[in-house]
Amino acid sequence: MTTNSEITQSGLWTNNVALVQLLGLCPLLAVTSTVVNGVGLGLATLVTLVVSNTLVSLIRGFVRSEVRLPVFVLIIASVVTIIELAMKAFFYDLYLVLGIFIPLIVTNCAIIGRAEGFASKNPVGTSALDGFMMGFGFLIVLSVLGGLREIIGFGTLFANANLMFGEAASVLTIVLNADYGGFLLAVLPPGAFFGLAILIVIKNLMDERKPVTSRAVDDSLVDNL
């Protein structure tokens, strides 16, 4: 039986989608050139995960196991389409920036992975929580990576915040160094690989320094599998 705190810990840290499962790398690497892009895609993925997990969990008693994967894919595709249309209606500028990566959320393996691996076997409440925590873990990594690349690449933070939060949010934009010429490599695709690798290194180093007890729990879980 998985408790809520275990689900939370797993989604945010021990089984983080981006840092441990390394799923959904395509959007992760492609759009995290600024914080706002990262947060935008992270939120869209989060909503998709929560809704698709809830729906899959609701129908888990009715769907025969032979056809479950096509059904899950249909549900996820419908959810993503709704989110895409909603973004077009309310955040059109951000939609233009994220472009093709919104429909591509469908292909994010983390979503079908949670539907198949968790939501199809658990009650609605825990499934929704799992979707939220997994999505939130993904969102955090996207934002941090976006921040890292934005600071190094452009020398700013929260640039274009008005795209997502309205004109009032323009004041959020911080220019760290006006004379900064920019380090293009951080913004280009290689910078995303370097940035993600650095984040994974930091996570693994932090895990190594943790007391042994918490790692023993993980090992026993692996043994049971």
Binding site: G181, F183, L184, L185
Partner: peptide, 10 residues
């Protein structure tokens, strides 16, 4: 090459 693609002006 890292410099060439990062700092075209310099």
């Amino acid at each position: 090459v890292a410099l060439l693609i990062s700092f075209p002006k310099e």
